[in-house]
Design a protein around this nucleic acid. Structure first.
Lengths: 116, 116
DNA sequence: GAAACCTTGACAAGGTCGTGGTAAGGTTGA
DNA sequence: TCAACCTTACCACGACCTTGTCAAGGTTTC
């Protein structure tokens, strides 16, 4: 069997076996499977699990946050929409005048939603 | 009083007054305040509330997801770390050989965490 | 001054997140 | 074959998310 089984992987990564299954369920780290269905973690996965763990604790974010970031990363549609909404915040209405601002917002909005 | 009060804003945006207070609490849309402390929503905020509403329902994301995106947007440290973790997933170990891959991962990891 | 609004704070309740268990059953290896 | 492992499927629990409602009290406006 190529790779570590779930409890071995748990020991070397600091996650519990339970959480390894949960992490897989979120889609963030999915190990290969043996013929009988056993999870098999390779070196790359183990490293990803370790770095993931540090990422979470260093910034105090949740798995769901990283999962959302992943979702944005492979859905340009979602990523662009969120980014556009966020960027609109940066501009101040004073900079452009309320009317222009509103028109700008509305047009961008329509453009983005028109993709659907 | 310049701007709409909370129930007026609720009517024209489709949010409930309760949710408008909650949205403010997440930091995503913060209206100005009158001398007496009344929330006053201007045209820009009203538009942001409308687009936010559509963003959430179109992609079925939560306020907390957008709040996390906002957090990433103004913390380059967090954004880079998440992005780096996510990008590592794209590369396949096969492309570089397991050993190089592992070394690459570890170095990137150290580099990113060294910032702290 | 009274009706109609606003404020914050609390209680409530169903949903998801993060995590641990336990049970019933299949796999592996000496 | 038998111990030690693995699987999925559940129950449980506290914490947080999203919403609503209600109470106690200040503001605005006629």
């Amino acid at each position: 069997m190529e790779g570590l089984t779930i409890n071995e992987a748990a020991r070397t990564t600091g996650w519990s076996a339970r959480m390894l299954r949960y992490v897989e369920q979120t889609g963030l780290v999915s190990p290969a499977r043996s013929a009988a269905g056993y999870r098999l973690y390779g070196p790359a996965q183990l490293q990803r699990l370790r770095t993931l763990k540090e990422l979470l604790s260093r910034f105090d974010v949740g798995l769901s946050d990283v999962a959302f970031a992943a979702r944005m990363a492979d859905s340009p549609d979602l990523r662009d929409s969120v980014q556009a909404w966020l960027e609109a915040e940066a501009r101040r209405p004073e900079d452009v005048g309320a009317e222009d601002w509103l028109r700008f917002e509305q047009e961008k909005h329509e453009k983005l939603l028109a993709v659907a």
